[in-house]
Every structure is written in structure tokens, then in C-alpha cells.
């Protein structure tokens, strides 16, 4: 029993939930306050994308689903919308090795920026598909531009945290 509990506690997914809770705390407080050009930087989405670029499509999709569900909990959009978008975005980010045989840190950084921006664009589209229309406006261009830049610049730190969070442990 204790070994099972230990295994569960040391699992990468438990660690992911705990780290995501902290990141969600940052997302809803400091990042929600600090909005350059009135744009909030989607840390949770970029973290999910980082998981995809490091560990591939499958791990990325599961990570995106978990992170997205947690993000959904604090949004007023339907539950499952962010998880769908985050999961799909991280899945796409995980396809990086299909295009670049040996990704370097900077190709990963660029991927996080570009795919993160696409994920941010996908969110209002998904909203429209479930009846919450009206968010696809010209302002989206500014949003995705800033997300792309912020994602690329913040990628080294995100990759570091993501690698530690989702690394396989001997127990897990």
C-alpha cells in the first residue's frame, strides 16, 4: 500500500498536477495583472506545448489534457474546451521530430512560440464552435504575435521546468 502510494506520489503525472497548480496560481495572479499591450501571456498553454516538444505527441496530449482541465476550472467557458485546445496543441507540438530530426534548444523554443500562438488562436475558434462566438476579432493578431514572442523568449525556462516535471523516475 505504502509502496503504491509512494509510486503514485513520485509519478510524473502527480508532479505535473502540482506544478500546474503553481503555474495556474501565477496565471491567475501576476500574469493576469501584468498584461503587455492588454494581452495576457498564456503560461499554462505554453507549458503544455513545452511538454509536447520535449516528450512527444502522446505525453504532450495527456499533459495538455490535464493542464487544460485545470485551466478550465477557473474559466467561465465550458469545461473541456481548454483541455481540448491544449491537448491538441501539445499533440501538434509533439510532432516536431517528424520535421526536425534532432531538435536543438532553439528549434524547440521556436516551436513553443509558433505552436503556442496557434493554440491561442485555436481557443476563440473553439469557443465559436460551441456557441461562444464574437471573440475572433482583429485583436487576435496582436495576441498571437505577443504569445509567439513570449513563448519563444520564455521557452528556455519552460523547457527546464517541464523537463524536471515530466521526467521518468525510478519509482514512478
Amino acid at each position: 500500500m505504502s509502496e503504491r502510494l509512494l509510486r503514485f506520489m513520485a509519478s510524473r503525472w502527480t508532479r505535473l498536477v502540482l506544478v500546474s497548480l503553481l503555474l495556474l496560481g501565477l496565471q491567475t495572479t501576476v500574469l493576469n495583472d501584468m498584461r503587455p499591450f492588454e494581452v495576457m501571456l498564456p503560461l499554462m498553454l505554453l507549458f503544455a506545448v513545452a511538454a509536447g516538444t520535449i516528450y512527444g505527441s502522446e505525453v504532450g496530449a495527456i499533459s495538455g489534457l490535464i493542464i487544460g482541465v485545470m485551466y478550465d476550472m477557473v474559466l467561465s467557458t465550458p469545461l473541456g474546451l481548454a483541455s481540448l485546445v491544449f491537448g491538441a496543441t501539445a499533440f501538434v507540438a509533439g510532432m516536431l521530430p517528424y520535421f526536425i530530426r534532432e531538435p536543438t534548444w532553439w528549434t524547440r523554443a521556436l516551436t513553443i512560440g509558433v505552436v503556442g500562438a496557434l493554440g491561442e488562436l485555436a481557443f476563440p475558434i473553439a469557443q465559436s464552435m460551441v456557441g461562444f462566438s464574437g471573440q475572433l476579432q482583429p485583436r487576435v493578431i496582436v495576441v498571437i504575435g505577443l504569445v509567439a514572442v513570449a513563448g519563444t523568449l520564455g521557452a528556455p525556462l519552460l523547457l527546464l521546468v517541464c523537463r524536471w516535471t515530466l521526467k521518468e523516475t525510478l519509482v514512478g
Binding site: G68, P78, S83, A88, G131
Partner: peptide, 16 residues
């Protein structure tokens, strides 16, 4: 990926 989409769609449906 299909499982992810299915889970999300079920959640969306339930919430809506």
C-alpha cells in the same frame, strides 16, 4: 489523441 478529444467533448457536453 482520439481519447483526448472524446474526453474533452464529453466534458463540454456535460457542462453545456
Amino acid at each position: 489523441m482520439a481519447l483526448l478529444a472524446l474526453t474533452s467533448i464529453i466534458l463540454i457536453t456535460l457542462d453545456l
